[in-house]
Design a protein around this nucleic acid. Structure first.
Lengths: 156, 156
DNA sequence: GCAAAACCGACCGCTTCGGTAGGATTTGGG
DNA sequence: CCCAAATCCTACCGAAGCGGTCGGTTTTGC
């Protein structure tokens, strides 16, 4: 599997927050019940989302979480990265100060790294899919009257 | 990380085999030395490739492995799948008899699965990248006189 | 002040990862 | 015919991550 349930649960959590039209926060236990997910596990996940600045929290009674910005402005690559860590196909890919990726096997002798081309393409495909999808799209898609799934997927 | 070193090592192994022009097999220890990888671990990986029909083996002295078909006919999705198992973004994706993928959270109440759209797009991106790359391309790319990396990546 | 909620950190069983070890079997060459 | 080289097979092992659980602390509205 490319991703663990951290991404799965975390994205569901975000969609649940995005579904709420009101400005008042909703509690984690509400989300946990709606999605039938373990509350104490969601706490760990929402902590990552909060540290990444994707959700804000209000403590105390009637507290809870809400999106830190409109759902249309939240790209899913940020969400998945907050939950799963750096998105790279391989251990040997790491970020450079310029924000690019490099393969550390780069200079094995006189040849180029034989796998780099492949992982660059995979990286591109995943990044494109994640960055090209907003939370608002997922909220819209999950509504019962949403357009046919084939249409939306095709638009990727 | 999306993939483990099984894919990394296994792909390097395949490239090494693809580099050999002759028809005679090359031994694992030769590959291990060339790529500086542990021989006993490579044995496990090459076993998966053999079971998947991607390489053939000849036992005994002067034995070894060779590609089961021309490198240009070997698509990397087959290689990675043989090494890592089914390529799916999520646990809840599984193959159907028709060869498609489905999300098992499909019918949670009256709403569509809120994450399905996202994982479908990711799945599409990865599959396109892997299936659109052949072993021959990687062999070509890893030669010192290969064309610039930007050109090849762009062609994805 | 009580209850509801966010917060925090420790723990735990399980599986996978990356690798090692030891052997068995097959085969070509001397 | 025997030995060395090679594939093949099974078991094991430490470390790490996954998917939680638990107990507690702090904050806040009513």
């Amino acid at each position: 599997m490319l991703f663990s349930t951290k991404a799965e649960y975390g994205v569901r959590l975000m969609v649940e927050l995005g579904r709420q039209p009101s400005s008042q926060p909703i509690s984690l236990s509400t989300v946990a019940e709606a999605e039938r997910l373990p509350l104490s596990y969601l706490e760990h996940l929402v902590a990552k989302l909060r540290k990444a600045g994707l959700v804000t929290s209000t403590r105390g009674a009637h507290g809870g979480y809400r999106l830190a910005m409109p759902a249309a402005e939240i790209r899913m690559d940020a969400v998945v990265q907050a939950l799963e860590g750096q998105i790279a196909p391989m251990e040997c890919f790491h970020d450079t100060p310029e924000g690019k990726v490099l393969c550390s096997h780069e200079d094995d002798g006189d040849r180029a790294c034989s796998t780099k081309l492949l992982w660059m393409r995979v990286q591109g495909g995943v990044t494109k899919a994640l960055a090209g999808t907003t939370l608002a799209e997922l909220v819209e898609f999950s509504q019962p009257q949403g357009q046919s799934e084939a249409d939306v997927v095709k638009a990727a």
